[in-house]
């Protein structure tokens, strides 16, 4: 018998496919369940307004989680997202003038800063061969510190027109829904193009990627640079919601950004994940808050619920992983 005959029948392929995507499917099921519960308790859930509203509420987390998903796909983790978000909001709240020119200038600078900080993370990680967890923990602390130096407590102001961004509509969809669509299109393109494939491949197996000619330094700079960009974008968007800067607000997005990605099926070990899953994860984490509200239980149940959902998601992926390994054996 040759190896070819030990190859897979189509059914095994289907089963592998199901197992590989089990975490994503579980996330879809959970979101459906939440929406259904929501829908039975509340009227008008299945309308565009509701979609617009929830997307607007979830957009900061979605942007932060997009930045996190890219890093997780690379096999790293980025805790400095929190620091970048804090610093971004603080810069916006203290520097934005009323003119469009000033807003554009400082927005651009915030995004550039995000990229620069990200690239610095990536370079530190590759040049000194350090653990992403520790490097980004350190840069988180530094960025957070700088934010506190600029603005010791919540405050500052933004132009009035900047505040309404999330409620602008076009063809019945809010600006945030359009942003979401753009994000997903960007992702589809990015992951089919070489830079995206390279990030995913390097996360899947760094040594192999290196032997195939990938420059690990460049991949890390790109990965963390993009991640920093999305964190900065999250900060900009956040100020359109809050209208103020906060040196501590970023902390609220670090772990949820990881949680949204993981709930959506992104592996912490790199190489596997998709933005669609992350978006679903972000919706789940956001809707939990609404659900707690309409079920009229203490809002303190919200963290409990999100923790339990996170556990269900990782257990599903752990069990699928085990089953897949058994299959391979």
């Amino acid at each position: 018998m040759t190896m070819a005959e030990t190859g897979d029948a189509p059914r095994k392929g289907l089963r592998n496919g199901l197992l590989d995507n089990a975490p994503f499917l579980v996330a879809c099921a959970m979101l459906t369940l939440i929406v259904v519960i929501y829908g039975t308790r509340q009227t008008g859930v299945f309308t565009l307004d509701e979609l617009n509203l929830n997307t607007t509420a979830a957009m900061t987390l979605m942007l932060a989680a997009t930045g996190q998903t890219i890093v997780l796909l690379r096999g790293g983790i980025n805790l400095s997202i929190g620091g970048m978000i804090s610093l971004g909001t603080v810069i916006v709240a203290t520097r934005f003038g009323d003119s469009a020119g000033s807003v554009i200038l400082w927005s651009g600078l915030v995004l550039l800063l995000g990229i620069a900080v990200g690239v610095a993370n990536g370079l530190l990680i590759s040049i000194f061969r350090l653990q992403p967890f520790l490097v980004t923990l350190a840069t988180w602390s530094i960025l957070n510190g700088v934010a506190m130096i600029i603005l010791p407590s919540d405050g500052g102001r933004v132009p009035g027109w900047w505040l309404g961004f999330g409620y602008l509509q076009f063809l019945g969809l809010s600006s945030t829904v359009w942003m979401l669509i753009a994000l997903l299109i960007f992702w589809a393109w990015f992951m089919a193009a070489r830079p995206g494939i390279t990030i995913k491949a390097t996360g899947s197996n760094e040594k192999s990627a290196f032997l195939s000619g990938v420059s690990i330094l460049r991949v890390n700079a790109l990965t963390y640079g993009l991640s920093g960009f999305f964190a900065a974008a999250a900060a900009l968007y956040l100020t359109t919601q809050t209208g103020a800067g906060s040196p501590t607000i970023g902390r609220d997005y670090i772990l949820p950004s990881v949680a949204a990605a993981v709930i959506g099926g992104t592996s912490l070990f790199g190489g596997r994940g998709h933005l669609a899953g992350t978006i679903i994860g972000a919706y789940i984490l956001t809707l939990i808050g609404n659900l707690v509200f309409i079920l009229r239980v203490s809002s303190y149940w919200q963290p409990v619920a999100s923790g339990v959902i996170l556990l269900i998601a990782v257990l599903a992926s752990a069990i699928a992983e085990k089953a897949a390994r058994k299959q391979a054996a």
Binding site: L268, V304, V314
Partner: peptide
């Protein structure tokens, strides 16, 4: 379960429970 996620989830759940 990856340790980061496991302990993170437990942390959030404890936070919620003690608040409740």
């Amino acid at each position: 379960v990856p340790p980061i996620i496991m302990t993170l989830a437990v942390n959030v759940i404890l936070q919620g429970l003690i608040l409740v």
